[in-house]
Design a protein around this nucleic acid. Structure first.
Lengths: 133, 133
DNA sequence: ACTGATATTGACAATCGTTTTCATGTAGGG
DNA sequence: CCCTACATGAAAACGATTGTCAATATCAGT
């Protein structure tokens, strides 16, 4: 049950590079397509595996879309934070929520729950998209 | 583009009954299986369609699991609320979060976002499961 | 550098939840 | 009772993700 040692490969470097160059959240398939567009021949399975590993290491953030598709994003802050995402253009703002964190703790304590974690995402329409209509 | 009129059928009644009898969150497949166990022959597609309709009408709450599977639950309170779910046994507590609601509004306003909504779920381990180890 | 143990890759098949298709059944207003 | 839309169910289609497995590449130790 020991975690396998992680190796540095061209493929992972390429994937990492693409994820960094893309702002906002993108699916594994998106990233694979972008990779292909740039001439890379990385396999789709590899993209999935690399992204999963990066997410496990906390190098990228994940977001579950309504339809169940998983989206990945390179975040500026490695610490725990949440996202404010524009429903239309996908523009993403990283937000810190100390209020929410303490609220979560309190709720858990009140109901005698242990080892708590939470998921929180905020969706809306950004100023730019609103201006356009 | 007008919403179709909703009809009352035996199938939907059966599905509704099962959902009510099951506490906590369950997948469409779970519900279909439970239906079968009780002698009903409702088709899987029908279960999916009925649950989607019920969710659209706000009659049941939905929860997206990490692996993308959608879970459904009959909630006591029809109003907006969140859930504190035990990771182990699935026990669910409905919690109200005025703090979170106002925080969300503030964050959205600060970044000039419009028409905001949010998803928030809290996971943990309940007292009972902790006692068992 | 060479080597060996082992992590990684990629093409493809398999899985699995969910949606669609379409012919048939049925609710419910007139 | 009769329409006419909506609903059903079986099966096929779908789409994201994961597994398989032989070939390959990484890297620590020599």
């Amino acid at each position: 049950m020991n975690t396998p040692i992680r190796r540095n490969t061209k493929q992972r470097a390429a994937i990492s590079e693409v994820v960094q160059s893309l702002s906002n959240f993108h699916s594994a398939q998106d990233i694979h397509a972008e990779l292909a567009k740039r001439g890379s021949t990385v396999g789709l399975s590899t993209v999935y595996r690399a992204l999963a590993a990066m997410a496990a290491d906390g190098d990228v953030d994940t977001l579950l879309r309504d339809d169940g598709e998983t989206l990945y994003r390179q975040c500026a802050d490695a610490a725990h934070h949440h996202h404010l995402v524009c429903r239309q253009c996908g523009a993403t703002v990283e937000v810190d929520g100390p209020t929410v964190e303490t609220w979560t703790q309190r709720i858990a304590a009140e109901h005698d729950f242990d080892d708590v974690s939470h998921t929180l995402e905020v969706f809306g329409r950004c100023a730019q998209c609103r201006a356009q209509g």
